[in-house]
Design a binder for these strands. Structure first.
Length: 458
RNA sequence: GUGAUUGUAGCUCAGUUGGUUAGAGCGUCGGAUUGUGGUUCCGAAGGUCGCGGGUUCGAGCCCCGUCUUUCACCCCA
């Protein structure tokens, strides 16, 4: 049989992996600098932990795991006198585990289970794969990695501000200079829904408004009509399409328009304070953009919402997050624990960086020096040198077989090893090794000590 | 989940209105004065034409199903 990959999954070869590790390392370094601690949770969770947290659509995208053993035991066969079993009714009887859909919900589960041992506020980062059963397409996979940093146990808007700072640091360290960090606040959307006489409908409102830049104002209105919004409410909504301009002027206009909504006013104030904290920090050339139409589908957000888009590429958002006030309450805690977090999508960041050629040249660099002995005598000289190079923190290897020189140099080219040390009888006798730069073709004679000095210097 | 789309050598692709032993480039392997690669020359290996059915004297080509790829919708990192 021919081997193949599961739909929407990929292998990562050495070259891809070294680029991916560059992304992981960059993000991890930032998370650590901001005081977040590492956490890992299992790939699978009880379905009861996962369901109901992501809305109906999200539940459908969960990968379920068939029970072990005779999962069909106790199921009755469909008979003429019985209605056929529907998969929806069948599911809880044959699957009680599922693959994690994101990192936020398992984190909330962890916090609730370990509440007694955690010093609040608790800051954790987590970089693990998640799985979603939707159709793969550009920038969308069934298995992909998220890098999350969340804080729970504080309402302080400093956390929101730090997320803004982290996003800037990560993007700039990755070399993604052209990006937009869109920010909004769910409370503003909630207030708008109240204002137009559709309280509690901010979810439907958000989903439709989120598509504004994609389908245009008229189609957004059509969609809202389809969702049961009256003409009256739509008329009341019109000002949202004309709030543009600088962040300050947008905030001022919103304040005026939503004057009667206490919720909206709180959202506006939160946003304002967050942005003020960011500017007090002294962030250079912030890429934050207030976008009233930014909604984000995940239903658990209650305050700030973030989304990062790379400019100049047609790949969806590469990062997103927000504040959630009652995620832990879904697990039955009476204590109100507020949290806020950000999630970086490694796979999309990879696609963006690949498309814009942003990976540094040495991101795929493996071995720095290849030792090429021509015979057993050369090998006797090469082995201690190999050891010395590695102790000097240089990645070095020796071609394992005594093969033809051509073959060994071909190997160096294939692995893009920039430096080759040729060791034949002449080199063994004089101690002057032939060091060849594979890029320029230039050769020079160096002693072992000179070689190590040269390699560690560059 | 809805609607399209793709599949021929390791890779990128040719392959006529259905007609004999399915081709190219690149790559791989071997060789061209036994201590020199990336540029040259010669040679070789490598394909159940995604898979399963059907139509036909005959299918890489037409039809159906299925899987896969890519894309739009939905939603999302």
């Amino acid at each position: 049989m021919k081997p193949s990959l599961v739909k929407g999954t990929r292998d990562f070869g050495p070259e891809q992996m070294s680029k991916r590790l560059f992304i992981f390392d960059t993000i991890r370094a930032t998370f650590k600098r901001f005081g977040f601690l590492p956490l890992e949770t299992p790939a699978m969770e009880n379905l009861s932990t996962l369901t109901g947290k992501y809305g109906d659509e999200g539940d459908q995208l969960l990968f379920k795991i068939l029970n072990s053993g005779d999962f069909a035991a106790g199921l009755t066969a469909d008979g003429a006198d019985q209605p056929p079993l529907h998969s929806k009714a069948l599911l809880p009887r044959i699957a009680e585990k599922g693959l994690r859909y994101d990192l936020t919900v398992p984190f909330a589960r962890y916090v609730v289970m370990n509440r007694h041992a955690l010093a609040l506020p608790f800051k954790r980062y987590q970089m693990q794969p998640v799985w979603r059963a939707d159709r793969p397409q550009k920038g969308r996979y069934r298995e992909f990695y998220q890098c999350d940093a969340d804080v729970v146990g504080t309402d302080s808007l400093l956390c929101e501000a730090e997320i803004v700072l982290m996003v800037h640091e990560v993007m700039r360290n990755l070399g993604i200079e052209q990006f937009a960090l869109k920010v909004n606040n769910r409370k503003i959307l909630t207030g708008i829904a109240e204002m137009i006489g559709m309280p509690g409908q901010e979810g439907a409102l958000a989903v439709a408004i989120d598509k504004l830049d994609k389908i245009g104002q008229d189609k957004v209105l059509d969609e809202l009509r389809g969702r049961g919004f009256s003409e009256e409410s739509l008329t009341a909504l019109m000002p949202i399409f004309s709030v543009e301009g600088s962040t300050d002027s947008v905030l001022a206009r919103l304040k005026e328009w939503l004057a009667s909504s206490e919720t909206a006013q709180r959202g506006i104030a939160e946003l304002q304070e967050t942005l003020q904290l960011v500017s007090q920090y002294g962030l250079d050339q912030p890429k934050t953009e207030l976008d009233v139409t930014l909604a984000r589908g995940l239903s658990y957000y209650t305050g700030a919402i973030f989304e990062v888009k790379a400019l100049g590429v047609s790949i969806g958002s590469i990062s997103g997050g927000g504040r959630y006030d009652n995620l832990t309450s879904a697990f039955g805690t009476s204590e109100r624990l507020s949290g806020v977090g950000i999630s970086f999508g490694v796979d999309r960041i990879y696609d963006v960086m690949e498309e814009l050629s942003l990976f540094p040249a040495d991101a795929g660099q493996g071995t720095a020096v290849l030792l090429v002995p021509f015979d057993a005598d050369g090998r006797a000289v090469a082995l201690p040198l190999l050891n010395q190079l590695r102790q000097a923190d240089t990645s070095a290897e020796m071609y394992p077989d005594l093969a033809k020189v051509k073959k060994m140099l071909d190997y160096a080219n294939a692995k893009r090893i920039p430096l080759v040390v040729l060791i034949g009888s002449e080199e063994v006798q004089t101690g002057q090794l032939t060091v060849k730069n594979m890029l320029t073709g230039v050769q020079e004679k160096l002693t072992a000590d000179e070689l190590i000095a040269f390699v560690t210097r560059s």
